[in-house]
Design a protein around this nucleic acid. Structure first.
Length: 522
RNA sequence: CGCGGAGUAGAGCAGCCUGGUAGCUCGUCGGGCUCAUAACCCGGAGGUCAUGUGGUUCAAAUCCCAUCUCCGCAACCA
């Protein structure tokens, strides 16, 4: 496989305050699908995810739990890491903002920005809740009470360091105007330009002195670095970046090819992050992919609504491949996606059990029944064969085109479309009828070969999404070493191989029974 | 008030940029097949594409304008 160069992909780091629900993990799954795909194409992939572990909220939660903030984030971070692994994430690095190398790099970079005049000392003013020890914005505090505890807020001031956003505003605007592809989807870019940049950027508060749980400012120890200068810089510190020395890894992988994030933090990634990098004199990332949210039905998932779904439960009920498939296929590009147990069951039965799993099952079964399990060599093609080959080509092209543009659900659907087409091919060619006529043996061989080959192609395409099931199929039909790009060529499957046993990959789910089980567990 | 989306068959979505017989999945009704996980295949029914019987055009879901409804953002909560 030829090396196509490097590919650096990141997810947003998860805030280590609470256990994440399935919607929070979409980042990781979608980034993992892309990372696996890129690796399969021959890229040297660096895939980074991790946890954001500082801040007032964590300090408060730790105090409630009666443990130190460090103990608290150790627990949550381990839990988040476990969930990433449970979901099959193939990240190459898991960063924690409490990691020593990150802390040191952030301190140095803060000092550098201060020394060069991008950071200055002033005071921060906002609505403050004394019991919660938290500041809130005007919109958050619109009723004059704390959005967390409901008690009255009061106007407070504290000393803080600020970053001069205004200084880089024009540069950022022209960058965004000249790089319309920087943000996907495009509407986010318009929103940022119109709402924030054109009216004039406010300087950003980058330190706090009202709480302690954060990275101390080197030259002014009563301050800790506040949020974004700590969190966003993970993308470069993970590669060993520090203002005074750039690691070899940094030189190799930066700039980032794509930051996968939720749309809610688009502002920080398309405005503050590029500006921080400009100030540091480093190249900007190539793309920010801001995906929509995964809603429960039509509602935002929240504990108080009792509609939260977790990765653990879904994987236990449906299996890893199915959960990944659902997430990859159910998320539209610009509007929010939706998940319910019913929709997962329906997707599972329709796409995975009936269409894809059953295609694999019947194809392998016919190979055994008609050819003793040996992959037959193809003979003279007919028009049905040509149509199937065209469909395979279209599936490959569609998959690649879509995934390269981060249209993951469209990519998945391209592959599934091929499976549907193959099921139709079986009806058109009626192999069971051919089998009754000895003179049709060669024709039957061609049909079975074409089906196995189609199965190989569909499986290769879907491997980044469902590595388990697809890997199993490929190994059973003797194609487990095949490169992704061989899916572009119909006929790459070698004949003469004896197929193995294929277990039921996706056993149909009885919706009523499954719902009973789910509701019983609650 | 501002900014960004969305409004297309019972449900979920695509199509809109680059106008030209309204498409996909599920569901539903009818038929076919038996290799397969009661799966698979074919066909039917079902939409005045939010509204304005608005503008541009030979032609508009697609471009323009106005209105209505829903959602998100509105800057220091990640």
């Amino acid at each position: 496989m030829t090396n196509k160069g490097k590919f650096y992909i990141t997810t947003a780091i998860a805030y280590a305050s609470r256990k994440p629900h399935i919607g929070n993990t979409y980042d990781v799954v979608s980034a993992d699908v892309i990372a696996r795909y890129k690796r399969a194409r021959g890229y040297d992939v660096f895939f980074c995810t991790g946890t954001d572990e500082h801040g007032q909220k964590i300090e408060n939660y730790a105090a409630e739990a009666g443990i130190s903030p460090q103990q608290y984030v150790d627990n949550i971070s381990a839990e988040i890491k476990r969930i990433c692994e449970l979901l099959g994430s193939t990240h190459t690095h898991f960063i924690r903002t409490t990691d020593d190398y990150h802390v040191k790099a952030v301190q140095k970079l803060f000092t550098k920005l201060y020394t060069q005049g991008d950071i200055y000392k002033d005071s921060y003013e906002g609505w403050y809740c004394v019991p919660c020890e938290s500041f809130f914005t005007d919109t958050q505090a619109k009723d004059g009470v704390c959005p967390d505890c409901g008690r009255p807020l009061r106007r407070e001031k504290e000393e803080a360091y600020f970053f001069k956003m205004s200084k880089y505003q024009d540069k950022l605007l022209s960058f965004l105007e000249q790089n319309p592809d920087f943000v996907t989807p495009e509407n986010i870019r318009r929103e940022m330009i119109n709402n924030f940049i054109k009216p004039g950027l406010q300087d950003l508060c980058v330190s706090r002195s009202s709480f302690k749980w954060g990275i101390p400012v080197e030259f002014d120890q009563k301050h800790v670095v506040y949020v974004w200068l700590d969190a966003l810089t993970n993308y470069i510190t993970a590669l060993g970046y520090s203002p005074d020395k750039k690691d070899e890894k940094y030189e190799k992988y930066w700039p980032c090819d794509v930051h996968v994030i939720g749309k809610d933090i688009a502002r920080f990634h398309t405005i503050y992050w590029p500006i921080f990098l400009m100030a540091l004199g480093e190249p900007l990332p190539k793309k920010v992919f801001a995906h929509p949210w995964l809603l429960f039905g039509n509602d935002k998932m929240s504990k108080s609504k009792g509609n939260v779904m977790y990765a653990d439960d879904l994987v236990e009920l449906f299996g890893l491949d199915a959960v990944r498939y659902y997430l990859a296929s159910a998320m539209p590009l610009t509007t929010d996606g939706s998940i319910t147990y019913e929709s997962v069951i329906s997707c599972f039965n329709t796409d995975l059990a009936n269409t894809f799993g059953n295609l694999a099952s019947r194809t392998v079964a016919m190979t055994k029944k008609y050819f003793g399990g040996t992959v037959p060599a193809p003979a003279e093609p007919t028009e049905f064969d040509a149509e199937l080959k065209e469909a395979a080509k279209a599936a490959y092209d569609g998959f690649v085109e879509n995934i390269e543009n981060y249209r993951i659900s469209d990519a998945v659907n391209s592959a599934m479309e091929l499976s549907r087409r193959a099921n139709k091919y079986i009806d058109l060619t009626t192999p069971w009828a051919l089998a009754k006529d000895e003179s049709q043996k060669a024709r039957l061989g061609t049909v079975i070969y074409n089906l196995l080959e189609t199965l190989r192609i569909a499986s290769l395409l879907l491997t980044p999404v469902m590595p388990g099931a697809c890997g199993k199929i490929l190994s059973v039909i003797g194609a487990d070493g095949d490169e992704f790009e061989s899916a572009a060529t119909f006929g790459a499957l070698k004949d003469g191989y004896t197929v193995g046993d294929l277990p039921i990959l996706f056993a149909r789910v009885d919706e009523a029974k499954m719902m009973e089980k789910i509701n019983g567990d609650k």
